[in-house]
Amino acid sequence: MALRIITADERLSASENKTSLAVFGPPGVGKTTLIRTLPADKAVCLDLEAGMKSVQDWRGPSIPIRSFSDFRDLVVLIGGADPSQPADGFYSAGHFAHVQKAFAESGIEEFLKKRTIIFVDSITDLTRQAMAWAKQQPEAFSDRTGKPDIRGAYGLLGREVIQALKHLQHARGKTVIFVGVLEKVTDEFGASAWVPQMEGSKAGRELPGIVDQVISMQLFGRDAEGGWVLDEQSAERRLVCTSGNPWGLPAKDRSGRLDMTEPPDLSALLARIDGRGAPAAALTTHSTSV
């Protein structure tokens, strides 16, 4: 593929201006319901966990995915062929042509061309499906004994998931939102940290470097001075958007346009990231123990 120059005007156009986000939150906080804040005529949910019950009234479409192979086929259909891949490799021109032929009668390719927001629910279940696939591959068995090699399976899992996420993240004109479970982990010394829940460690380590924005969704209350405090008994949800936040939650704002916390509205959030939304009023935030 020939190299091309993208001008500033092109970069700001709808065909080039896109954002990739990873949104993590504990089970039950309402991550999937964030899709209600996205336009039903522009978004599609790639449903890996059969979890649409909580948003069954959302008017947008979803595509149920039961295997990592199906996810990989959808990714190449969305992102097109990667010219750097070998002819017989995944995401290659050959793979793209094969998937186009397989889905020719379904109309999925034309449908996906019209969708500019890809909501992946969830990346946690994606890694589980990928692990089930990886355990069946030759790399997951010892060359010497023929017995299962769990290290080989985890290595393959990490490589394949990261390749899939990068390919989807590079899709032209597509804003991609990865949703995942956030869990609190305590080590043997009693120190606690919030980390994304995924199979293997490679995907969890590398995902923050792939996406533009990392956001944590949590329940918050107010302290006596009006600052936000984590409160699992509260009903108010907030999106934590910047690193160095006092709660130690995973977050990264590459745009530099977000406040430390934002309302749970993805359309408004994307508008602010793109510079189209009005800055929110400054909020006082106080440090607190989790």
Score class of each variant (00 low, 15 high):
Ala2Gly: 03
Leu12Lys: 13
Leu12Phe: 12
Val23Ser: 01
Thr33Cys: 10
Arg36Glu: 13
Arg36Ala: 14
Pro39Trp: 10
Ala40Ile: 06
Asp47Tyr: 03
Asp57Tyr: 04
Pro64Gln: 07
Ser67Glu: 01
Leu74Thr: 01
Ala81Cys: 04
Pro83Cys: 01
Ser84Glu: 07
Gly89Asp: 14
Tyr91Gly: 08
Ser92Trp: 04
Lys101Cys: 08
Phe103Ile: 04
Glu105Thr: 15
Ser106Pro: 07
Gly107Arg: 10
Glu109Leu: 11
Lys113Cys: 08
Thr116His: 14
Ile118Pro: 01
Phe119Tyr: 06
Phe119Lys: 00
Phe119Ile: 00
Ser122Lys: 02
Ile123Thr: 03
Thr124Tyr: 07
Asp125Val: 07
Asp125Ile: 06
Thr127Phe: 02
Lys135Thr: 14
Asp143His: 11
Pro148Met: 12
Gly158Asn: 05
Gly158Tyr: 01
Arg159Asp: 09
Ile162Gly: 08
Ala164Asp: 10
Lys166Ser: 05
His167Gly: 04
Gly173Cys: 09
Thr175Lys: 03
Leu182Thr: 01
Glu183Gln: 14
Glu188Ile: 12
Gly190Asn: 09
Ala191Val: 10
Ala191Asp: 11
Pro196Met: 06
Gln197Ala: 14
Met198Pro: 02
Gly200Asp: 00
Glu206Met: 09
Asp212Ala: 05
Ser216Leu: 04
Arg222Leu: 11
Ala224Trp: 13
Ala224Gly: 15
Gly226Ala: 08
Val229Leu: 13
Val240Gln: 06
Ser243Asp: 05
Pro246Met: 00
Gly248Glu: 00
Ser255Phe: 01
Gly256Ala: 02
Gly256Glu: 03
Glu262Pro: 07
Asp265Pro: 02
Leu266Arg: 09
Leu269Glu: 13
Arg272Glu: 09
Gly275Met: 04
Gly277Phe: 04
Ser287Asn: 09
Val290Gly: 12
